[in-house]
Structures are given as structure tokens and as C-alpha cells.
């Protein structure tokens, strides 16, 4: 992956999202910094309630406001400000859209009463200013690209006539029709079988490389993220607790949460063995623990963790990446905390 971090495509600084349902607003994303280079693929991993999906939707500008409220010091794609909601249409309005997003359930993204061809053609005519006949040809080409067999005839089928994996391919084609510079993929393979997941991941990798498209890949599964991204951000309770090159973070995690997640994930080849289970469960966003949000579940926690939210600090001296932990670098395994 030809990551060119020096030329940032997306820059997000201090993104905060809160939700207000009647009462006092509850902040669920607490100051996330994120950057994606041109053609770079970046992962966000975290458990349910970590704020990973909300972050993706906030960047895309599709959170319902109210109840959601998004603020950021900076949030721009290729120089265009994204604050104020809604992804701008690039340039003269016939240039597609700078960001596109795909979701876990492809079926909800496709209108069930239209043939997939019409949905695609419609997008191409409206968003790219193509003529009908050009759009139809392009639609076939896109479906071909996402490896829908017999694209020329399948274009006349309705969404329900495709399997889950095929539907996700169609949604990817629909996203590509907008010629985005950044694709946000939110758990795009979670509902799919492993063999189908492998194919979709490969497709995303290929497309991302050939289009030098940036990608944010959001998932709860560390293993899946590792297969498509070069840089990873680990989120917990609305903050990025660790970030860095995927190999470095996975091989030498500095944050105890990252360490614990990696230890907890079951692995083929570990036969009949206990893994490390992180005690407790993720905090309720409406009443987060004081200090570091992970401290109630952390074996390394000391008094400072209970009082003070840790700063974002470099993972390694001189290296890229961050870890937000008072005890960054201390090892759960060495402390004997995993027994």
C-alpha cells in the first residue's frame, strides 16, 4: 500500500460528538484526532460503544442532528471543510462526492423496488452528469469491476435476488460510482461468512490501491482490520487509546487495552486453552469512570489512572503513533495480570 501520509487527504482534529435525548447531552466521542493520507488505508477498531461508528458517521456528516451534535477544531477533506454537516459535492456538482460510505448491512443501502442497474445509473446521471447510455455502460463496468458475474444481465436484477456478499459488492460499486477520494467502510464484512469476507476484503484492497483512494475501515475484529489497513487506531470509550502502523501496534502493543484485546481474541491453533478475558464490560457512555476510562478493567491501573485522563503521547520515541496511557509500554503479561 503506497501510503503517502505527507499529503493528508482527511484531517480531523479534536472531533467531539454528543447526543441529547431529552436530558443532558452525553458526549460519546471525546476529541478524536485522525488523518488519512492520499491512498492510505486506516483502521478504527473497538468494541461496541467505543464510538468507532459514530466517528465514521460524524465524518460523513450523516448523524441525525439533533440529537447528535458534532464539533471539531478541524475536519476537512482535501482542503474542504466538512464541519457544518453533510459531505459537500465536489467542484461543479458533476464530480461525484469526496467521501462515500458503506455499511454492515448492504440491503438497507439498496432500494428494494429498483433494479440494481437503475440505482447505479441514477447515481451516475445525477452525481456525475453522465448521459443515460454512458451511465448504463459505466454501471456494467462498475459491476464487472466488483466481480459480479454476468454483470450485463445481472444489472436487471433486484437487490433481493443477490446474496449478501453480492449485495455488498453492489453497494461498493455504488460507492465507486461517486468517485470518492475517501471510502468509509463501517463493518462491511461483519454480516458475511468468512469465505465471502475474504473476497470482499481483497476487493477493497485492490480497489483502494488502483484508485489511490483513501479508506477508513471500521471493525470490531482486529484480525479483519489487519488485512486491509496500514495504520490502525484503537478506540475505547470514545477516545483513540492507541494508534500506529498496524504491524507495530499488533506486535508490540503499548496500551494495556490493546494488549488485552489481542490476548483475548481466540486464535486458530490455540487448542483447548484459556485466553485472557478482560474483566468487566465497556463503560456506559452516560456515566464514564473518572480518569482513564479503562482503569476499572485494567490490571496496571494505579492512583493516577483513577484521577487523570492520560495525554496522547508518542508510542515510541521518534516513531509514528500514539498511546494514551499513564503506563504505556508496561506489559500485562510481564505483570502477570493475564492469569
Amino acid at each position: 500500500m503506497t501510503a503517502t501520509v505527507d499529503t493528508p487527504l482527511l484531517t480531523v482534529e479534536d472531533l467531539r460528538v454528543s447526543f441529547a435525548y431529552g436530558g443532558r447531552p452525553v458526549e460519546v466521542v471525546h476529541g478524536v484526532d485522525l488523518s488519512v493520507g492520499v491512498g492510505e488505508s486506516v483502521g478504527i477498531v473497538g468494541e461496541s460503544g467505543s464510538g468507532k461508528s459514530v466517528t465514521g458517521r460524524a465524518i460523513m456528516g450523516i448523524l441525525p442532528t439533533p440529537p447528535a451534535r458534532t464539533t471539531a477544531k478541524r475536519m476537512e477533506i482535501a482542503g474542504q471543510d466538512l464541519r457544518g454537516g453533510g459531505v459537500p459535492e465536489a467542484g461543479d456538482g458533476h464530480q461525484g462526492q469526496p467521501i462515500a460510505m458503506i455499511f454492515q448491512n448492504p440491503f438497507t443501502a439498496l432500494n428494494p423496488v429498483f433494479r440494481v442497474g437503475s440505482t447505479l445509473t441514477e447515481a451516475l446521471v445525477k452525481r456525475r452528469g453522465m448521459s443515460r447510455s454512458d451511465a448504463t455502460a459505466e454501471a456494467v463496468r462498475l459491476l464487472d469491476r466488483v466481480r459480479i458475474p454476468n454483470a450485463k444481465s445481472r444489472i436487471r436484477n433486484y437487490p433481493h435476488e443477490f446474496s449478501g456478499g453480492m449485495q455488498q459488492r453492489i453497494v461498493i460499486a455504488l460507492a465507486l460510482a461517486l468517485e470518492p477520494r475517501l471510502l468509509i467502510a463501517d463493518e462491511p464484512t461483519t454480516a458475511l461468512d468468512v469465505t465471502v469476507q475474504a473476497e470482499i476484503l481483497e476487493l477493497l484492497r485492490e480497489i483502494q490501491t488502483e484508485r489511490t483512494m483513501g479508506m477508513i475501515f471500521i471493525s470490531h475484529a482486529l484480525g479483519v482490520v489487519a488485512e486491509v489497513v496500514s495504520r490502525v487506531n484503537v478506540m475505547y470509550a470514545g477516545r483513540i487509546v492507541e494508534s500506529g502502523p498496524v504491524g507495530s501496534v499488533y506486535d508490540d502493543p503499548k496500551h494495556p487495552y490493546t494488549q488485552a484485546l489481542l490476548l483475548a481474541a481466540p486464535k486458530v491453533g490455540q487448542f483447548r486453552t484459556r485466553t485472557f478475558g478482560i474483566p468487566g464490560s465497556p463503560p456506559d457512555p452516560s456515566s464514564p469512570p473518572p480518569g482513564c476510562a479503562f482503569h476499572p478493567r485494567c490490571a496496571l491501573a494505579t492512583d493516577v489512572c483513577r484521577d487523570t485522563v492520560p495525554d496522547v503521547r508518542p508510542r515510541l520515541a521518534g516513531g509514528s503513533g500514539t498511546a494514551s496511557c499513564h503506563h504505556a509500554g508496561e506489559s500485562l503479561v510481564a505483570e502477570g495480570a493475564t492469569r
Partner: peptide, 17 residues
């Protein structure tokens, strides 16, 4: 196809639904 199974991931021709 299983991520983290210690094999290099590859979508095989055999994959499919």
C-alpha cells in the same frame, strides 16, 4: 479465509457463497 489463522490471507478461487 479466517483472519488471524496464521495463514497469509488469500481469496481463493474456491471462495464463494
Amino acid at each position: 479465509a479466517t483472519p488471524g489463522a496464521g495463514r497469509s490471507p488469500r481469496a481463493t478461487a474456491a471462495a464463494g457463497e
